[in-house]
């Protein structure tokens, strides 16, 4: 039996230090700490995320899904007038396991009223800088920002519109990335592979990079903005080197569009052979009542802890990771 923790005492202390620093930061910036349910009757419809599901024997075997993010209930709080809120919680995602992934991990999620994604990026940088002061980092904490379009262009030399799957295949081959995709795979999957294997590895090491304004097809829960002929999603991601740390949105607050996106994703799940899951009708009802203009972000605390402690495997920071949980 492997009963011992995977994280050593220093790493357990580091997590406690991180959590304290995060709470101090939000105490000082007037955001309310909230708790929302871990189990929900609805699931995420995101075709790339698989929820854990549990059956309730005392309720006719009805399903409950473990949260993959606290986003929906937190938005319901916002719609009910909570004001700025934050939450530290454990989220669960099936099949995500590796050097940077554990199927359950700790997320910090927060929302700011009247912020757009750029103002929230300012705050993410401020929070990360503040929290990291509690640790002895050898590298200075520096941030830069680049749009998704320009990040792709910088590495490939191409505008987004010029890239079809054949072009991407060509670029991947030039970077000696073996490609498991075919012409039948959605173009976004090709972009995902390009991002993970070529673009993100080109980001400056020991440096924070924000990527913002994603293609509309990768909007997730962000609102769209049309400028001239191109429409972008007001979404951002934060990377440290090539390690992805956070994902944020200028939040979509159109109930009808949200319901359309849920239904579209449900359709994609069926086409791709994933489990059919119910979407959150409560969120749609809340959006109908009105979500104040806001931006929100989810930041992986285990990943932040990796760079704060200079650890290259997430398992070393988790008391009992999946292989001994």
């Amino acid at each position: 039996m492997n009963w011992r923790p995977a994280a050593n005492q220093d790493h357990l202390l580091a997590r406690a230090t991180l959590l304290r620093a995060v709470r101090e930061y939000f105490d000082g910036t007037q955001a309310l700490e909230v708790v929302t349910p871990t189990l929900s009757a609805a699931a995420t419809t995101d075709p790339a995320i698989e929820s854990f599901v549990t059956h309730c024997s005392d309720r006719n075997n009805s399903c409950r899904y473990l949260q993959t993010s606290p986003e929906f209930p937190m938005k319901r709080l916002l719609c009910a007038g909570s004001g700025d809120i934050y939450q530290i919680c454990t989220v669960f995602r099936q099949g995500e396991s590796g050097r940077h992934h554990n199927p359950e991990f700790q997320l910090l999620e927060w929302y700011r009223l009247e912020f757009d994604h750029h103002r929230l990026m300012d705050e993410v940088a401020e929070l990360v800088s503040t929290v990291l002061q509690a640790f002895e980092m050898s590298a200075p904490v520096e941030f830069s920002r680049i749009s998704y379009r320009n990040a792709i262009k910088q590495v490939t030399g191409f505008e987004l519109e010029q890239l079809d799957y054949q072009q991407i295949e060509h670029i991947l081959a030039r970077h000696t990335v073996d490609c498991p995709l075919s012409a039948n795979d959605p173009l976004d999957h090709w972009f995902d592979l390009l991002m993970s294997t070529v673009v993100a590895p080109s980001f400056a090491h020991n440096h924070f990079t924000f990527i913002y304004d994603y293609p509309a097809s990768q909007a997730a829960l962000a609102r769209l903005r049309t400028e001239g002929e191109s429409t972008v999603a007001e979404r951002f991601e934060l990377y440290y080197g090539e390690l992805e740390l956070a994902n944020g949105f200028h939040e979509l607050n159109d109930a009808a569009e949200q319901a359309d996106r849920f239904r579209h994703e449900q359709q994609l799940r069926i086409e791709r052979g994933h489990a059919k899951v119910p979407f959150d009708q409560n969120l749609i009802a809340a959006l109908q009542a009105g979500l104040p203009d806001c931006a929100g972000v989810a930041l992986g605390l285990d990943r932040l802890l990796m760079l704060a402690t200079g650890t290259d495997n997430i398992y070393q920071l988790i008391s009992f990771p999946d292989d001994r949980a």
């Binding site: 790339a48 972009f191 993100a200 991601e237």
Partner: peptide, 15 residues
Amino acid sequence: ENEFVKPGKGQAFSR
């Protein structure tokens, strides 16, 4: 060696 990679909200790969 097996490395699980997943960009943000997209498709995951095993390298």
